[in-house]
């Protein structure tokens, strides 16, 4: 077995553009699902009953349906329903946000519920209103407590962008497939892709861990 990695070096720009799209899609869908997840979580915790039931149904459904299915449906089926065509990147963004927001919402909810009830009592005793308590006392602590889970969700987000290759988003996985197909050197290309993903993902989880170690005391009541 001899390997010739020149296929990778010759086409590094092609692959690098894939890495760029991977990072862009990860960051943007990470942000949109964070915001959407926060909204969904607040609706679930503080919203009126019928809305809460709908939200719970949505969250549990995303735990049942694979990301691949959501992405494919967003790209192929949604345009039929709405009449709008979306470029692959946008469809991937929509699909990923819808799927990940459910998980983000659960992380937010768990974080908020994990804050000790005594904190609420102490804040009430000072004369704070419920809204002030959530904003100034509960959320700051809850956000610290959510960090490890969000770090893990970020890692999942980056891995899920690779599935967007199935709907022809030119991220790293897709670029690798194309290059592997054209060059007939799948092993070298895919091995390289594995290394790149590892190099991106490993620091993300480690970095979140390290950051959390330093700020954990701010969430410990």
């Amino acid at each position: 077995m001899d390997f010739d990695f020149s296929v990778v070096t010759d086409h590094w720009r092609f692959l690098a553009s894939g890495v760029g799209i991977t990072l862009l899609l990860s960051v943007v869908s990470g942000l949109t699902s964070l915001v959407a997840g926060l909204v969904v979580a607040l609706l679930r915790l503080y919203g009126p009953r019928p809305l809460r039931l709908v939200v719970v149904l949505y969250i549990d459904s995303m735990r049942a349906i694979p990301v691949l299915v959501v992405l494919v449906w967003s790209f192929f089926a949604l345009p039929i329903l709405t009449g709008l065509t979306m470029p692959p990147f946008v469809a991937a963004l929509v699909g990923l946000t819808v799927h990940l927001a459910a998980y983000a919402a659960e992380i937010v909810r768990a974080g908020i519920e994990s804050v000790r009830p005594g904190q609420t009592r102490a804040a009430l005793a000072l004369g704070m209103s419920r809204a002030q308590i959530v904003r100034r006392i509960i959320l700051p602590q809850a956000i610290v407590r959510m960090l490890p889970a969000f770090g893990s969700l970020l890692s999942i987000t980056i891995k899920d962008t690779a599935i967007a290759s199935v709907i022809a988003v030119p991220e790293l996985m897709r670029q690798s497939e194309t290059l592997a197909g054209q060059s007939f050197q799948p092993i070298e290309v895919y091995t390289f892709a594995m290394l790149v993903y590892f190099v991106i993902l490993f620091p993300v989880t480690r970095g979140v861990d390290m950051f959390y170690q330093r700020v954990a005391h701010l969430g410990r009541s």
Binding site: K159, A162, L201
Partner: peptide, 9 residues
């Protein structure tokens, strides 16, 4: 730290 779809390929 690898996407599963890549491992499959």
């Amino acid at each position: 730290n690898l996407p599963l779809i890549l491992v499959v390929f």
